[in-house]
Design a protein around this nucleic acid. Structure first.
Lengths: 243, 243
DNA sequence: CGCCAGGTTGATTTCGCTCAAGCAATGTGG
DNA sequence: CCACATTGCTTGAGCGAAATCAACCTGGCG
């Protein structure tokens, strides 16, 4: 404790590996310096909220580490987890750029660190480098595509199929391929949160998991999942595959 | 037939009333001229498709008249109507701007006319007038917000509540307020298509309509609907209202 | 006239929600 | 160290909203 440095040489914009895969990859060194100088970094504990539905944004957030969930809820207390964001990803840009209020809340799902970049800085960056705006445009467009797909899935697929699809997304994002061709994942979410991502209840989630185990689609143990055959998994929601 | 002029003095970009309410309102006369000269106008019959899911966009469309529906479908033939677009609105910008394929099909729901503006023209406009890009950004952001709301609604509201919400949207968009405080609408869609907008079957749609009639929420006759009390209608999906 | 698409209605089934209880792991205060 | 609350997960029983299946009606249109 005593010999720990005051400031860890933690992620900064210049060394950030994830930056290459995000909107910020178009920035020049001088522009990065602008962010680096202006940003305010903060730690969040699991469950803590970064911003709340209805708030007015006055900047955007960039995740240094951890994982943030975007959650939307209605008057009755029903909630959906709309999106997961991790290291390097930008948070809260939608409402900020649209000049509107947040229409979802952001909450830390793990211990996380996020930087806040204020309005003037963003504005200057956007003016200075139009490519950045275009990047954001692409990002929102992609998110919109994902949302549309989710709408279709919710009305046309069963809970089980939707969960299979979610698992497949996790495999692609966090999965490790084993030597024997099977995949394994460390789930980034609790069962409750997974339930809330596919729009169902914890109870149904639990039953679905059990049934998929007995069917040999996946083996669950805590947050670790073994997928013997991705092909079978895909088949659960995309049965057009034959052979 | 014989004495019909070859070209009707139909809507053009300069006289278009709807333009003021769309992305294009930021354009100068010189820029409008660019579109006006480059656009290709075409008529579509009901049911005709403007573009199909999976196609690669090479421009965007602007609706002169009529109504276009954005429809997404999966392998099994399940479909959802995601969005309705009418006069002055832009179509196909999402995939175009994201530089990806269309992920939904567009089809005429009424006899419609739409202009096609090709990639080079759009590109020139975006470069010339950065405000246009920002407008599109706002538009996509709004659409994304709507999509997120729809996701929440689909999981937390009943078919009846979702339909009530859809009706309310129609009231705001196409409704006429009568002298006695009641509203009336001419539905822009068939029952099937309304069912497909709220993610249900025609059968359930039919039953829901019937039940709402007997409950005095609305009176249906063909495509005309009378809403005695919007308050009651809103109450169907947003029960937080008391008094 | 017969056909057909769009719509309604009825009977039946099913999926997933609700309610309720139990269980394991973790934490807390005495 | 134990009694206990708490939290996340699982399991069971029952119910209900909505899908499915199947007729049937209606109005337009060739």
């Amino acid at each position: 404790m005593a010999n720990q440095p005051l400031f860890v040489a933690g992620p900064n914009c210049f060394t950030c590996q994830a930056r290459e895969r995000t909107e910020w990859c178009v920035l020049q060194d001088a522009e990065l310096r602008l962010i680096e100088d202006g940003k305010k970094s903060r730690r969040y504990l699991p469950g803590e909220t970064i911003f709340r539905e209805g708030d007015t944004p006055d900047g955007i957030f960039c995740i240094e580490s951890g994982m943030i969930g975007l959650r939307k809820s209605d008057a009755e207390g029903n909630t959906v987890l709309l999106n997961l964001l991790s290291e390097g990803e930008t948070l809260g840009y939608r409402a900020f750029l649209a000049d509107s209020e947040y229409d979802a809340s952001a909450e830390a799902l793990e211990p996380s660190t996020a930087c806040f970049v204020d309005r003037p800085t963003i504005r200057r960056l956007l003016e200075h480098n139009p490519a950045l705006g275009l990047r954001f445009l692409k990002r929102v467009a992609k998110d919109l595509g994902d949302a549309d797909e989710k709408i279709l899935h919710n009305v046309s697929l069963s809970v089980r199929a939707r969960f299979a699809h979610l698992l497949m997304v996790f495999v692609e994002r966090y999965g490790k391929l084993a030597d024997n061709g099977s995949s394994s994942i460390d789930l980034p979410l609790s069962r409750q949160d997974m339930a809330s991502m596919i729009g169902t209840t914890p109870e149904s989630m639990s039953r679905t998991i059990k049934k998929m185990e007995t069917d040999g689609i996946a083996r669950f143990s805590g947050r670790t999942v073994q997928i013997p055959s991705c092909r079978n998994l895909v088949n659960e929601f995309d049965p057009e595959v034959f052979v």
